[in-house]
Structures are given as structure tokens and as C-alpha cells.
Design a protein around this nucleic acid. Sequence first.
DNA 1: CAACCCATGTAAAAAGTTACATGATTAA
DNA 2: TTAATCATGTAACTTTTTACATGGGTTG
Lengths: 177, 177
Amino acid sequence: MSLPHALLTSLVERPGAGLDLARRFERSIGYFWQASHQQIYRELGRMEAAGWIAGDDVPGRGRKREYRVLASGRAELARWVAEEGPVPAQRDALLVRLRADAAIGPVEMVEQVRHRLQQHQARLALYRDIEARDFAGPLTREGRVQHLVLRAGIVAEEAGVGWCREALTVLAEDPVT
Amino acid sequence: MSLPHALLTSLVERPGAGLDLARRFERSIGYFWQASHQQIYRELGRMEAAGWIAGDDVPGRGRKREYRVLASGRAELARWVAEEGPVPAQRDALLVRLRADAAIGPVEMVEQVRHRLQQHQARLALYRDIEARDFAGPLTREGRVQHLVLRAGIVAEEAGVGWCREALTVLAEDPVT
DNA sequence: CAACCCATGTAAAAAGTTACATGATTAA
DNA sequence: TTAATCATGTAACTTTTTACATGGGTTG
């Protein structure tokens, strides 16, 4: 499981409270690993119990606690990074729908593919903005590796856009009407 | 949830027993939707209880039961296909590892990326074989839509191969040694 | 002072994973 | 006749999702 290590990574980059992390998982880290705040709070509790992180009360801000990574957490993260993990599997209900469409006869799916195309285009534009803003000039090693992570998103979205265009062409050949 | 509908799709294409479906989920359907035999048997039970499918005993073959889709299952599948679903999220631990690598200092990750590259290449070769074998000549609408599903796998693997090559170039610039 | 956001949770349900169990049939 | 494979499951656990709860602070 990678959630604790995604949290460690984010906290190494910058300490923060549970809700801060939840917000980071809606952008940046969340582009390739998702988690809800409920998951995050539970995992932070476990990680604190394991001695990987420590939480400090933030006075005057309600129950807010800011977490930072301890030495043993940093060691655990280094151990995990070097570990070989499985290649993530594809899982896309739209492809199941298309296959069902092929089997049971034409269903109107152009709108679904168009919607998917828009999402890919929107994410691609976002990633390219980030690329132009943060990775334009000469980079340190840290910058080059961070850029690589962003590039993974960019090539995936480009592939998505290309496939959607192809799909719209094919679906237009045989209109359901 | 899409598992019951993936099973309906597979059973519409061809009736079969639980283990047949489990085998199909290790190839074809499994390229974009995975399920273990435990999940499949549980789901087949629910789908039979819902009246979507019926199972017939296969005499002389132990406890084997062959399932086929009933009219209400076909209707449910048609309903679900036309429904709009969420865009699946990316979730890749290797990208988390790279981001952690950027944050805590250089870790040897070339082998992991090389391994990933090999997997993408292997899947790409497999998909291209299937493409050459099953989708070479002129196709019916059914064939064109099935081809589209395969094309999604091909463009995704091509993108993966391209990114891995890019990553190896970047990681070679700053050897950990 | 009311409405809203901040911040942290609990509870229950659904889905997925891992390990193990059991009997029937087939091949060496 | 024994080992392997076929075929169907149970049980326990972990992870993820969904819905709800609660109190502190801030702003109109």
C-alpha cells in the first residue's frame, strides 16, 4: 500500500495538517494518487503511532495539528522508494461500455467520448501551464525528476486526447440515428 | 460499480462458467478491467439473485454451472452503457516514488523504470499481434468498436514506452553512483 | 448572531485482496 | 492410484467510499 508513503512524501516536501494534505491530494500529488480526508486522518494516526511522524498542536487554531516527518519515517520512505512495485493495471469503465456496445448493438456513446475528450484536454492544458511556469529554465536534479513526474501526466493525457479523437471518428461512421 | 456489467458483457459475448470468466479476466476483458475468481463467484451469485443471469448445471462436469444472460440482464446492461461514468483517476506508485526520490535525495530507480519499460513493450507487442490477427481486413461496426477498445490499450502502452525512455534519459544524467 | 468555512473525526457499507478449503475429474 | 487440474466456494482482512457529526473560528 502506498498511501502512507504518499503522505510521507508530501510531508517531507512540507509539513502540514490533515486538511492541508487533503487539499494537496486535490492537486499536485492527487494527479497520480488520490485520497479522501477520512483516509488521510486515519493514516496519519497510524503513522504517528508507528513513530514515523509527529504532530504538534497549533495554538489558537482549534484542533489543528501540524505533522512533520521523523527520522524513522524518512528511513521508511527511503526503504520503500527503492522497493520494486507492481505495474498498475488499467481500469476503465468506458472501455467496458464500448465493448458492451459492440456486443448488444449500437448505443449512443458520442457524448460520453466527447466529455472524456474535454477532460483530457483540460488536464493537458493544466499540466502544460505548470510545465511552462515551473520547469522552463535550467533545473537542478530535483527539478528534473519532478518534471519527469509531470511529463508522465502530460504523455498520458496526450494519449487520451488522441484516442478520443480516433474514437469519435469511428463512432461518427456509424451513427446510431 | 462496473464488475457486474463487465461480467454481463462477457456473458453476452459468450455464456460460460465462473472459471471461464476468471480466465477471460486474465486476458481480453482483463486488459481494462480486472477481477479475481472470488469476486466473480460472489458477483455471479448476486446477479443470479437479481434475475439478470441464469446458471445451468453442466452434467458430468462436477459442480460446473454455465451462466447465460437473461432479458432483464441485457436491459440492465443497455441501461448502464448509456449512463455517463466518471473519468478514471491515475494511480501510480512509481510516480510517488520518483517524487519522494526528488525530495529525499537520489535513490537508484533506473532498474524500476527499465522493468516498467519492458512491461509496456511486452503488452504493446501483444496488443499489436492481436490487432494484426483480428482487425486487419474490412470490419463490421462490431469489429470497428472492438478495435477501438484495443486501440485504447495500444496508445496507452505507446505513451508508457515513450515516458519510460524519457525517464531513463533523465535518470542517466545524474547517476546515483 | 447567523451563516459559513476550518478542522477533525465516526460509522457503516461496499469493494478488493489474501489465504485457505473441498470435492470432482483427468492424466501419468 | 496418485498427482494435477478443474471448479466452486468461505473467511478474514484491508482499503475505499459515502454519509454524517461536532466544535472552533471568522465575517457580514
